[in-house]
């Protein structure tokens, strides 16, 4: 029911990836995204794929679930591949019919582009599968904190995300309730032109907005009553702390980056 939506993609577990500090994971993901764009030779793609498969296995997240995470871009990846296959000229001609020519270089480029996309998504979904949204928020806040002096509202952003996470299930429940109440009054939400459909959503959207404003107001009062006055001077129940695992993660990412750089510029 609601629980699956709330937790986002999080798959609870205790694997190595689960135990990493969220900051390490976010940085590693960013690092990986950069590396993907350094990759050029086939060897570097094989290395990236091997690394990604290792990570997927390490996470202990069922492969079916990982596939589900990657699925949405499958079609886009295929399309990208096709475009490259048909538009790239050069190399040995594998197939030719009228104006359509498929070359070896085209196939290679197409496969690489598709792989880039898939790897990108695989890695970011591994991050969300192994990190609960709450911990992820903490990680983002901690990473943004140094930029506070240049005006990045790290605490406020994190507080907003926390409250959003907290109220998603509540608002979903509320939407369901309002929809049922209006359906019981004969409201029809399906069918009709776009305009009538939009109009038919008013009986849901207006109450939802009204109640959200009321909730926001009451929450603000409750927070004020509990001495909330912004991020200044606040302590945290769970301070993030790097461990040996994070050192390992750093080493692995450095090695990977070095290897990729070597494959690109030394060979």
């Amino acid at each position: 029911m609601l629980s699956d939506i709330t937790l986002g993609q999080y798959f609870p577990g205790t694997s190595v990836l689960h135990r990493l500090d969220p900051r390490s994971k976010i940085l590693a993901t960013l690092c990986f995204i950069v590396i993907i764009f350094i990759a050029k030779s086939s060897a570097s793609y094989i290395l990236l794929c091997a690394f990604a498969i290792c990570c997927a296995l390490l996470s202990r997240v069922p492969l079916k679930l990982i596939y589900k995470g990657v699925k949405p871009v499958f079609i886009i990846a295929c399309l990208t591949a096709l475009i490259h296959i048909f538009s790239t000229k050069g190399g040995e001609v594998l197939f030719s019919y009228g104006i359509v020519t498929v070359t070896a270089l085209g196939v290679e480029m197409g496969a690489k582009m598709a792989l880039r996309l898939l790897l990108l998504l695989l890695f970011s979904s591994l991050l969300t599968y192994t990190t609960s949204p709450i911990v992820l928020t903490d990680g983002i806040e901690a990473l943004l904190r140094p930029f506070k002096s240049v005006g990045v509202p790290a605490h406020e952003l994190a507080m907003m995300m926390t409250i959003a996470l907290r109220f998603i299930p509540t608002l979903l429940e509320e939407t369901d309730r309002i929809m049922k109440a209006q359906t019981a009054r004969g409201a029809d939400f399906a069918g009709g032109s776009i305009l009538t459909r939009l109009k038919s959503l008013l009986p849901i959207l207006v109450p939802l907005f009204v109640s959200s404003f009321r909730r926001a107001d009451e929450l603000a009062t409750a927070m004020e009553a509990r001495c909330y006055r912004g991020g200044e001077g606040r302590t945290r129940l769970h301070e993030l702390a790097y461990g040996t695992l994070d050192g390992g993660c750093l080493a692995v990412m450095l090695l990977l980056t070095a290897a990729m750089a070597a494959l690109r510029w030394l060979s």
Binding site: R226, C227, L237
Partner: peptide, 17 residues
Amino acid sequence: NQIVAAIVEEDVAFGPE
């Protein structure tokens, strides 16, 4: 409308934090 955090213990900690 008075619970701030998405985990019980974190909400209890909100005031003292």
